[in-house]
Amino acid sequence: MDDPRIWITFLAVLGFVMPAGGLLSAFRHARTSAREVNTQLSRGLQLMRQEEMERSVVPYSDQQSRAEIRQRYARMRADEGIQMDTYGSVAFATLTAKDQIWSTALSGIKGDLVWVGVGLVAGGVASVWSTWI
């Protein structure tokens, strides 16, 4: 183990494997998150159609029944983690969407970025060290 070429080779391989693994893992997180959002969107649209169908058979004058239907579906959406915008939040829908995208993306790939960074440092150390041999 006195030969520095072994360590340089190890660091160089690590400099490739860790970033490649981190990028692959980040891609998998992004793909999984996109699938989850797509599933929630489909389910949210399904619940919205069901709610509209139920409310369409209730007379408009029966506000209590209509409110109960609305509350039941609001609970169902909340239980499934499906967020609905209200008229008050529509003005900020773009900013809310951007915030959701960035916070979700960063929280999902934070660990992956650490692996990429460590791998880049290992590759850099191997490169600099190899110039002195």
Rank of each mutant, 00 (worst) to 15 (best):
G21H: 09
S103I: 04
L106F: 13
F92L: 06
S33Y: 10
V37K: 15
T131S: 09
Q100V: 07
V118T: 09
S25W: 13
T32R: 11
Y73V: 08
I101S: 09
W129C: 01
W7F: 05
G81L: 04
A126W: 02
G124S: 11
E54R: 14
A126I: 01
Q100K: 11
S65D: 02
I6A: 05
L24E: 00
D2R: 11
L95S: 12
R35C: 07
S89D: 09
L23C: 06
V58F: 00
S107I: 10
V57Q: 08
L113K: 00
M76S: 09
A122D: 01
M76I: 14
V125S: 05
G21T: 10
V17Q: 05
N38C: 10
L24A: 15
S42A: 10
T94H: 08
A97Q: 11
S25E: 07
K98V: 12
S65G: 02
V125G: 04
F10T: 04
S127D: 08
R77D: 05
W102L: 09
E80H: 13
S89E: 11
V13R: 02
I8C: 02
Q100H: 14
R49C: 10
F92S: 09
I133Q: 08
I133F: 07
N38A: 11
V125Q: 05
A105N: 06
R66E: 00
S56N: 12
G108I: 01
P4G: 03
A122T: 01
T32H: 10
N38K: 14
S103L: 03
I69R: 03
A26L: 07
L45P: 04
I8S: 03
A105D: 02
E51C: 10
L95R: 14
V58L: 03
M48E: 13
M53L: 11
H29A: 13
A67M: 14
A67P: 01
K98R: 09
K110M: 07
S89C: 05
M1S: 13
A122Y: 00
G22K: 06
Y73T: 08
A74S: 12
V116Y: 02
V57C: 00
V121T: 06
T86V: 04
V118R: 04
W115L: 13
Q46C: 07
E51W: 06
I82M: 06
A93D: 07
Q63C: 03
F27R: 09
P59T: 10
D79Q: 12
V118E: 00
Q83F: 11
Y60A: 13
W115F: 09
D62Y: 06
S25I: 06
I133S: 04
E51M: 12
L23S: 07
D62P: 07
S103G: 01
W132V: 11
S42G: 11
Q83W: 08
L45T: 15
E54W: 08
L23N: 07
T86M: 01
R28Q: 12
S127I: 04
